[in-house]
């Protein structure tokens, strides 16, 4: 136990600042009213679905949980049940074998809901394109709010896409400073 605590102390806090939002990533700007976003944007629950990716995007989404990005510190959490989710995060291309499962997951998420497509394949089918086995990009199957290009997009870009979808403002610097002073405070108000 001593070694565990010592290592935690030695490594310290490695969390980094979250990225600014980028409205050019928005696909359907008016899909969800901004008034609703002010409610669901604060504590965000995400259901991730791999609809046929090469698993490169999954590695980068998993990385969001590491101490550098610390997305749980931003109030964002990946959940197992779509019924608990506000957002569907989809990597693709959507294989035809995953099309039904993806649709059902989408339908199981309560309204209002957001869809973010991750990676070049999620955006438009990428290198795999459309074929007998692939539906191509996520927007061929579901309405997409934000699409994040990249092969795979880096964690910071995925986070930017997520924050853009909920139109979250950048953190208030004075609050961050209080956090650094050791006072407990969420990283967002």
């Amino acid at each position: 136990m001593w070694y565990v605590l010592k290592q935690i102390g030695r490594i310290g806090i490695r969390s980094e600042d979250p990225p600014e939002v980028d409205n050019t990533l928005r696909v359907e700007a008016e899909h969800i009213q901004s008034a609703i976003l002010q409610i669901i944007g604060q504590a965000l629950m995400i259901r991730q679905v791999d609809a046929g990716s090469c698993n490169g995007c999954e590695l980068e989404i998993q990385a969001l949980n590491n101490p550098c990005y610390n997305i749980e510190g931003l109030g964002i959490k990946f959940v197992a049940s779509p019924r608990h989710a506000d957002m569907l995060l989809v990597t693709g291309p959507v294989s035809r074998h995953m099309e039904t499962a993806l649709r059902r997951t989408y339908e199981a998420i309560p309204e209002p809901k957001l869809v973010v497509a991750i990676g070049d394949c999620g955006c438009n089918g990428g290198i795999f394109g459309e074929s007998y086995a692939s539906c191509g990009g996520v927007s061929n199957v579901l309405p997409v709010d934000v699409a994040v290009p990249g092969c795979p997009p880096e964690p910071i870009e995925i986070l930017r896409g997520i924050l853009t979808a909920v139109q979250r403002r950048p953190p208030d610097q004075s609050k961050r400073n209080r956090l650094m002073d050791g006072q407990f405070s969420p990283r967002y108000n």
């Binding site: 490169g56 990428g126 795999f128 074929s131 086995a133």
Partner: peptide
């Protein structure tokens, strides 16, 4: 479930670009 037609896709890929597709078989 993630079958996306990679082997057929190779047949439509120029040989000198095949390494890019191969590099996305399992990320």
């Amino acid at each position: 479930y993630t079958h996306k037609g990679v082997e057929k896709r190779f047949e439509q890929t120029p040989p000198l670009l095949g390494h890019r597709l191969a590099g996305r078989i399992s990320g």
